[in-house]
């Protein structure tokens, strides 16, 4: 009798566990997915302002590690030269988000090397001039383009004092999910926004720089490495006469 009862209890428990699993498991899975998706669905706030300090004395002549890393990270290396395009002309037309620039001081002859990209201005001229609002600044200071409403007028490129933007001159066959790209729209460096929105705190160029010339982080957090470095070393903004309060600063120019 008792063995029959035990059997019945065992069956009951089994069925209960099975039924509970079927009912609860999707919820658990859903919950887990939600937890992962949350950072993407929460609006960014101005508690954070992303910024960068570039120590030009550490930037090495001839090194293009940051440029190559950016190209890979943002699928720029996937943009192929169209068949029949002129090599020299295409070089001027293909997109660039970051570039290496070498300067010589006219008086002293001192050489400076630096990477140049979108400076993520607090008052970006590209945002001011955009007729549709496609060029915009996020609350966390990142300046980027909404490719759904960019009409390709290129007025932002006329207005950018850093020549930081690229127009997509040709059809792009292959692109990364994290960096959609289409012919006829304008784009530029977005501080690897896909990384930041997924909880990462570094950019591809920073990670690639073996000379540690690039420090990236939250300018609003006094304890962040970038804030500490900015406090410690004198830095400048390129075209500081325009009072744009750039998110990218340089030392030793």
């Amino acid at each position: 009798m008792s063995s029959v009862n035990d059997q019945g209890r065992r069956d009951f428990l089994k069925k209960t566990v099975a039924a509970t699993s079927v009912t609860v498991a999707p919820g658990v899975v859903l919950h887990t997915l939600q937890a992962q998706a949350e950072p993407r669905t929460t609006p960014v706030t101005d508690k954070v302002r992303w910024g960068m300090l570039i120590d030009t004395s550490k930037c090495a002549d001839g090194c293009t590690d940051c440029v190559e890393a950016c190209d890979r990270e943002n699928g720029i290396d996937l943009v192929n030269k169209p068949e029949g395009a002129d090599d020299a002309l295409w070089e001027r037309q293909r997109p660039h988000w970051i570039r290496h620039v070498k300067l010589r001081d006219n008086m002293t002859g001192r050489i400076t090397n630096l990477p140049l990209m979108c400076q993520h201005c607090e008052h970006p001229p590209c945002v001011d001039v955009c007729p549709t609002g496609a060029s915009f600044k996020r609350a966390d200071g990142i300046v980027m383009v909404d490719r759904h409403i960019c009409i390709g007028c290129r007025y932002c490129m006329m207005a950018c004092p850093y020549k930081a933007r690229s127009f997509i001159h040709a059809e792009v066959a292959e692109k990364l999910t994290r960096t959609p790209r289409g012919k006829g729209c304008v784009e530029s460096c977005n501080f690897c926004v896909h990384r930041l929105d997924n909880g990462q705190t570094t950019t591809a160029c920073q990670d690639a720089c073996k000379h540690q010339a690039i420090v990236f982080g939250d300018l609003n957090d006094p304890q962040s490495p970038v804030s500490k470095a900015l406090k410690q070393y004198p830095s400048v903004q390129i075209r500081d006469d325009l009072k744009l309060n750039t998110g990218v600063r340089y030392t030793n120019i």
Binding site: H96, V101, K102, L103, R104, D105, I111, Y162, I238
Partner: peptide
């Protein structure tokens, strides 16, 4: 962009 300086090489 760089008053008082000459750009001697550029990637773009």
């Amino acid at each position: 962009m760089f008053p008082g300086k000459t750009i001697v090489a550029s990637g773009y």
